[in-house]
Structures are given as C-alpha cells and as structure tokens.
Amino acid sequence: MGSIDSLYDKVKRFVTEFTSGKSTSSAMTGYMTGELQIVVFMMILASFFRIFSIPLGMVILAAVVGAIFIFGPMIKTIEDENSSDLNRVLFWVMIYFAVIIAVTLWG
C-alpha cells in the first residue's frame, strides 16, 4: 500500500544503505556524489547504443534508468568490485581479456 509511512521507510532505507558503519558527513557526500556519477555514467553508456540503432538505444536507456532506481544504491557494489583483492582483480583481468579477444576475433 502506498501510504506516506512506507514511502518514508523506503527513502530512509535507501539513504542508510549508502554507507556501512560510521557515516561522517564527508563520507556521505562522497557516496552520494559517487552514486549520482554512476547513474549518469550508466545513462551515457546506454546512449552509446544510438550508433547501432536509435530506437533500441532509447529503449535501453529507459530500461537502464528503471533498473537504476530499482536496484540502487549501486555505489556499494561498485566499491566492492573495485577493491584491490588479488584474486578479484585477476578474475576481472581474465574476463576482460576474454571479452577483448572475443570482440576482435569474432566481432
């Protein structure tokens, strides 16, 4: 039910999900700005689809905007995936390499 109370709860949960542990004001600023950056960046990435086909690009842009609002905040995921854990970086390097070879060989 869309009462005012549940919307408040949702917003509160959304805001408190940004940081884990002690959230100082400067840390919060960083996380909030980072989240905004990621949202805009996703939209820019989606808009690159106009090169292939403009209608499809618009659909994907809309889908990305929707997904961001459903799955946000994404900054925690981004932060975790960008940690300098050796095995994680190795994993991402191999994925990257596979994608590059696949794109150039069969692209």
Partner: peptide, 10 residues
C-alpha cells in the same frame, strides 16, 4: 593465505 594477507584495502 592470500585471502587473509592480500585482501583489498579499505
């Protein structure tokens, strides 16, 4: 153990 020694920095 790499999972203990080489985990990401926060």
């Amino acid at each position: 153990k790499a999972s203990k020694v080489l985990k990401g920095e926060r």
